[in-house]
Every structure is written in C-alpha cells, then in structure tokens.
Amino acid sequence: MNEKTAWERLQIIRDKDRPTVNDYIPLIFDEFYEMHGDRHFGDDAAIMGGIGRLEGMPVTIIAEVKGRNLDENKKTNFAMPHPEGYRKALRLAKQAEKFHRPVICFIDTPGAFCGIGAEERGQGEAIAENLLEFMRLKTPVVSVVLGEGGSGGALALGVCDRLGMLENAIYSVISPRGAASILWKDAGKEHEACDMLKITAEDLVNFGVAEAIIEEPNGNAKNDLDKIAENIKEFLSDTLIENCKKDIDVLLEERYTKFRKIGDFIEP
C-alpha cells in the first residue's frame, strides 16, 4: 500500500467517478430487494436498505447512498440522512434479527443532515437509538466505510462486530473543514486540519476502531470496479463466515468489548 496523505485520500473519495454502493451491490450480492420507509414518517433516500444474498446466504443490507451525478445526489441529499433514514435502518436491522440474517452496513456520508426538519424529528434521538440497539442486536453486524465516514451520521451505521475501511476511506469525528473553522477560524485551512485529525484507514486500525483495510486496485477504487467489489465481498464473506459460527451471546460481549476498550486516559 502506498503512502498517501489524508488530504490526498480525501481528494480520491470526493472524486465524482468514485464508485458508490449502487455500483457495488449488483457485483457483490446475488439478489437484492430494496425495502422502503421507516413506517412512521417517510422514506429517506439517503439510506437505502433491503434484503439480498451474499454467497447464497440471506443478508440485510443497509447503506448510505452517494449519488453518481447531481440528479441522484438531489434525491439522496448527498448521502446526508434525516432521522427517518436512521429509523428505516433500525427497522430493517430488527427485521434481520427476527429472521436471523446478518446485517451489512455500508457507510458513506459527510454526516447526518443539519436542518430544521431533522431537528424537529429528533436527529439526535434517532442516532442515539441506533447506537444502543445495534450494540445489542442479536445477529452479526459488519460495516464497511466506502468513502466518507462523517461523524455521528456514520457511527449510526457503524456499531458492528467488525469494521472494514476501503484503503482511501476516512472516518472522522468532525469534517476537516469544520475542524479548520473552529481551530483557526478559517475553513480554508481544511488541508492542514485533514492531515492532523488522524482519519485514514491506517490510523483507525491503529486506534482499534477498524479491523481491516480493504485494498483498492492500484490505489484507487475507480481503477477496477470488479476487483474492488471482489475485495469487499471477500471481506464480508470472511467476516460473516467466522461470526455466524459464534454463539450470539459471545458475539454480543465481543461487540461491547470492542467499543468498551476504546479510550485514551490515565489514572495517576
């Protein structure tokens, strides 16, 4: 793997030709039926969900959807979900639990949407509920960051047994732009902030947040769509083969411990 800076990786994942979940689904899954709506308010196209087959095994798929052009992005709100998107995700995850299907989450968002409707409908509560419920969801959960892992909006699909990151993907508590504007009162210093925040796949493996880095063909997913889809599929199957064998109580305790041990503090 070559040594790119976080900033260089950010440019790669923001490239309009970067493959999105819509490119991957037909290559990874044998069948896919999309399911709509949170059953309370509406259907948020920023999060897509459904049922498919991975190597013959029924799975539930939940994904944040970046558009491949402006029209698609208008529809999916540039992958910035509203509360009903997170609630749809939870509904489908609970359905998966009922039918003993593993859950696969694809993360790719600049963050949860910031707007009036999102606040009125409880953006914070929706994300919080997902964190709590995914933590105790009695079925294996595996997540992959495809591109941008933007803060709480990403974590809402990121409470899992195993997290994989595409080689150039990033995962951050705050957008580099946001950090720059708070830190230096200058959003233009995005570049410096980006390289400082430690948000690359390698950083996240070092912090124990991610378990695997999924290699992109010749350093960029767009170079070979079939190959990158194959790599993602391999990560998913390997993880699920292993985790489906485990007793569910053991798996849940491991999931709790994975997050429980993250923290950097001293007790003098």
């Binding site: 709480g152 508590v173 948000i199 912090f207 997050f259 429980r260 993250i262 923290g263």
Partner: peptide, 12 residues
C-alpha cells in the same frame, strides 16, 4: 479525534 466519536457508542 475518532476516539471521542467512539465514546458515543461505548456509553450507549
């Protein structure tokens, strides 16, 4: 950084 974000999952 990311360690702070993970505290959300840990506390929940």
């Amino acid at each position: 950084g990311i360690i702070s974000l993970m505290q959300m999952a840990k506390t929940s």
